[in-house]
């Protein structure tokens, strides 16, 4: 359960990224956040695991108040069960896929085991199982920088699954993939959401991807929520309100396939 109550974020340079956001997300929901770049999508999801600190309002994630008092060890323990997936995958190059997934386990380790990079048999089996869940077990011992973009995003997904998360935050997970791969990755996301009841919050620039895969859509414009409802309820007018203009080709992913 994630509860935003009048949450705002103002950056030190004066930019107001979010104002008065009130939003409830239940466990197991799949939510897409759409809007122009710069509308505050990234800020919104980074607030959830306190990669960014809110400046006003109240944010409660799984009964933990996310505020300036959440720091140090409690903050790290809180982040343990919130996964995060990025647009550029953020895998560690020059090391194997398995080591990348095992990286999600390092937070549980003591100092010596961290330094030596020691992982137990259970850790390794969990990591391999996570790779199996996203269907790339056969790539486990290959270097991560030798994979294609779609495979990399699957490894990133496996990395968050190895955290055994209750929430996955996805920051533009398919924006740097081609349409076919994007479709596959989004199918993975939906399957994970349904099978393991993991809450997924995904920032999406591409409207059609969001509408195709996600049940609940939140539209933000200039740091404010201007729409919140099921994807079937999204109309041309609502999109115009969110984007403050007509949709362009850049906002659509799958249309390009027809052109090709």
């Amino acid at each position: 359960m994630i509860k935003f109550r009048n949450v705002g974020k103002r950056y030190p340079n004066g930019t107001v990224a979010l104002k008065n956001v009130t939003l409830d997300i239940d466990q197991g929901e799949f939510v897409a956040i759409i809007g122009l770049s710069g509308a505050g999508k990234s800020t919104l999801i980074r607030l959830v695991n306190k990669m960014i600190e809110p400046t006003s309002g109240e944010l409660v994630v799984n009964d933990t108040r996310v505020d300036e008092k959440l720091n140090g060890f409690p903050l790290r323990r809180f982040r343990r069960h919130i996964g995060m997936v990025f647009q550029s995958f953020n895998l560690v190059p020059r090391t194997t896929v398995l080591k990348n997934v095992l990286g999600a386990k390092i937070a549980d380790k003591g100092f010596l085991a961290s330094i030596l990079g020691y992982y137990s048999k259970k850790d390794q089996l969990d990591a391999l199982e996570a790779l199996h869940k996203v269907g790339i077990l056969d790539k486990a011992f290959i270097r991560a920088d030798q994979l294609s973009g779609g495979q990399m995003q699957r490894v990133a997904l496996a990395r968050t699954l190895a955290q055994d998360p209750s929430i996955i935050l996805a920051d533009e997970p398919v924006a740097s993939l081609d349409p076919v791969t994007a479709d596959m990755i989004m199918t993975d996301f939906r399957r994970i959401n349904e099978e393991y009841k993991i809450t997924i919050i995904a920032n999406m620039h591409h409207v059609d991807v969001a509408l195709k895969f996600v049940r609940r859509v939140v539209g933000i414009r200039d740091g404010e929520i201007v729409f919140d409802g099921p994807s079937e309820a999204v109309t041309e007018d609502i999109l115009k309100r969110i984007y403050n203009r007509e949709l362009t080709e850049d906002d659509i992913m799958f249309k390009k396939v027809e052109v090709v």
Partner: peptide, 16 residues
């Protein structure tokens, strides 16, 4: 936790 047989198989065959 039960692991998939393929997972156990790749664990056994991991590069040592």
């Amino acid at each position: 936790m039960n692991y998939h047989p393929e997972v156990l198989h790749s664990y056994e065959h991991r590069p040592k």
